[in-house]
């Protein structure tokens, strides 16, 4: 760090600040985008181009790897499983998490602080530690190798986030808005659906996407608890271990793209602040 003492230095310091700011933005964007770009061009290149050097920065639009992948046996099934499990996780974590968040925000009850701590503690146990007893339990109850069983585990992973996100969402909505709705002819229920729900919908959506992505990316529980009905991550882990490089790229691409599309589709809700960015 340089010492900036006189006022005369201030414009220089400000320019330096702008440069650092710009550089940081570029760096962070590159950090995210460059690997994605490489993934993209390698997926769309022929197997020979993938292994060649130097690499081309323009994709060749060779769909060979992808076609091969799509026709790979079990592949579409795994994709379908992943979507089913992630969707179930999304629904269950919101259905369970949002009421818990509402209760934490609106009511005072004994053990509230402890409850909040315990919710976070569910993330304190490493999954490998729980996997074996879970597997045994699932086999006994017949939940093993089912989408629902796996979604249960993923819901457990996603719920702390769902609860804490919705808790802060509900806390951000003044109770007066609900009260105003009551005086304007609403019952408790209609006040919730007409006032509270529209306001928290962006946050609920964000929270749901988060749950979806957690489930979509999760590989350990999926690999341990499913055999026939593998999700995409577990399936890829199993089959791509010895696969050639271009197939690994195609697999990675197929994993990343749905999550990206999903987040892109609902980006408005993630960024929107009412009245500011309603475009």
């Amino acid at each position: 760090m340089t010492d900036v003492t006189a006022d005369a230095v201030a414009p220089d310091a400000r320019r330096a600040g702008r440069i650092v700011y710009g550089a940081t933005v570029v760096f962070l964007c590159a950090w995210v985008l460059v690997p994605l770009y490489f993934l993209l061009i390698n997926t769309l290149s022929s197997p020979q181009a993938v292994n060649a050097f130097p690499k081309s920065f323009i994709p060749a639009f060779d769909l060979g790897s992808l076609t091969f992948f799509a026709n790979f046996s079990g592949m579409l099934n795994a994709l379908k499983n992943s979507v089913i499990v992630a969707a179930m996780t999304m629904v269950m974590s919101i259905v369970i998490g949002a009421p818990a968040g509402y209760a934490l925000s609106r009511f005072d009850f004994r053990g509230k602080e402890l409850f909040r701590l315990l919710i976070l503690l569910t993330r304190a146990f490493p999954l490998p530690l729980l996997a074996l007893p879970l597997a045994v339990l699932f086999i006994r109850t017949g939940l093993d190798d089912t989408a629902f069983g796996l979604a249960l585990v993923h819901t457990t992973l996603a719920i702390p986030f769902a609860v804490l996100i919705t808790y802060s969402l509900f806390s951000g909505i003044p109770i007066e808005l609900e009260e105003a709705a009551w005086t304007l002819g609403c019952t408790r229920l209609t006040a919730f659906t007409k006032v509270v729900l529209p306001l928290i919908l962006p946050g609920i959506t964000a929270s749901a996407i988060f749950a979806f992505v957690i489930s979509w990316n999760e590989v350990f529980a999926a690999a341990v608890l499913t055999i026939e009905n593998r999700t995409l991550t577990a399936f890829l882990l199993q089959t791509l271990g010895e696969a050639p490089l271009h197939l690994k790229f195609a697999g990675g691409f197929i994993l990343v793209v749905p999550a990206l599309i999903f987040i892109f589709a609902v980006r408005k809700y993630l960024f929107a602040m009412w009245g500011i960015a309603n475009r």
Partner: peptide, 20 residues
């Protein structure tokens, strides 16, 4: 009676204008 059945309207200190 519930607030909606009392024939009243209310103005709140922080306005409570619905932001959405």
């Amino acid at each position: 009676l519930a607030p909606k059945d009392r024939g009243i309207a209310m103005v709140f200190q922080n306005y409570a204008v619905f932001p959405h």
